[in-house]
């Protein structure tokens, strides 16, 4: 007798829906995405699931498994209790399209607000590994948007218009700390991207499948940079005194 599990999957669209239970046979090493594929292939061919690589590299298959935001391709069935149904729900913070697929286009709109890399004039293209290490952590991001989904500023307070979310602070950290970048995005962070809304409660760091230390290494350093420019009277005075001209955006 093959071992089985019950998946309790959300079925529905933007108008509403309910969960439906599916019985799925368990194979060794199976992940939740395998179970969803089994449902597609045998029980519900129109079950909408977004996925690409099934190897934890593309960040497409985000969902909430037993209430926890996860990549379904990296969530092992044998790590979940199978004596009760495993709930699989779409990401809560984004508008539902169908079943487990949500509309994440907001993220792409936010990304457009961030000025791209622009080298300082006349830079020599020599970069030291010690300058690269820090930024490479941010570049690991696979844009699964789980951090955006779990962040309570978006999830509970719907600050989509005023707040960019952890993903884009990670992106900006990668640009701001790029050793050759010549732009300054502190004003943008403070005013348009609402970094002040972040109260550093670290859920983004907890869910990141790439183990980027989002809060400590990206958001807090950016907050400190914003302090330099807007809240610290001494550094503000010092900048004035030195006549620093930064290319603000």
């Amino acid at each position: 007798m093959m071992k089985e599990a019950t998946l309790r999957v959300f079925r529905g669209d933007s108008k509403g829906g309910q969960t439906v239970d599916y019985r799925v046979p368990i194979a060794p090493g199976m992940v939740v995405l395998d179970a969803l594929h089994y449902i597609q292939g045998h029980l519900a061919p129109d079950l909408a699931v977004r996925w690409n690589c099934k190897a934890g590299k593309c960040g497409s298959c985000s969902a909430e498994v037993n209430g926890r935001p996860r990549l379904t391709c990296k969530t092992r069935m044998d790590d979940l209790p199978v004596d009760q149904p495993i709930t699989v729900l779409p990401m809560k913070s984004f508008p539902r399209i169908k079943d487990l697929v949500t509309d994440v286009s907001w993220n792409y709109r936010v990304n457009r607000k961030i000025p791209a890399f622009e080298p300082r004039p006349g830079v020599e293209w020599k970069i030291s590994q010690l300058d690269v290490d820090r930024v490479q952590e941010f570049r690991k991001c696979i844009e699964c948007f789980l951090c955006q989904n779990v962040c309570h500023v978006l999830r509970e307070h719907d600050k989509m218009e005023q707040f960019a979310g952890p993903r884009f602070f990670v992106r900006i950290a990668g640009l701001e700390m790029h050793p050759l970048d010549g732009r300054d995005r502190a004003g943008l962070l403070k005013d348009q991207l609402g970094i002040g809304f972040c109260n550093i409660t670290k859920c983004c760091t907890e869910v990141c499948p790439e183990e980027i230390r989002i809060t400590d290494n990206a958001i807090i350093p950016l907050k400190e940079r914003v302090v330099d420019e807007f809240y610290d009277p001494l550094t503000m005075l010092f900048r004035k005194f030195r006549g620093d001209k930064v290319q603000s955006v």
Binding site: F10, G17, T19, D21, G67, K92
Partner: peptide, 20 residues
């Protein structure tokens, strides 16, 4: 494949599907 009641919990204090 029995249907079960609607589940997407409304946001209120403590609402979650976390099992821990």
């Amino acid at each position: 494949m029995a249907d079960s009641p609607p589940v997407l919990p409304e946001s209120r204090l403590g609402s979650t599907l976390r099992r821990d």
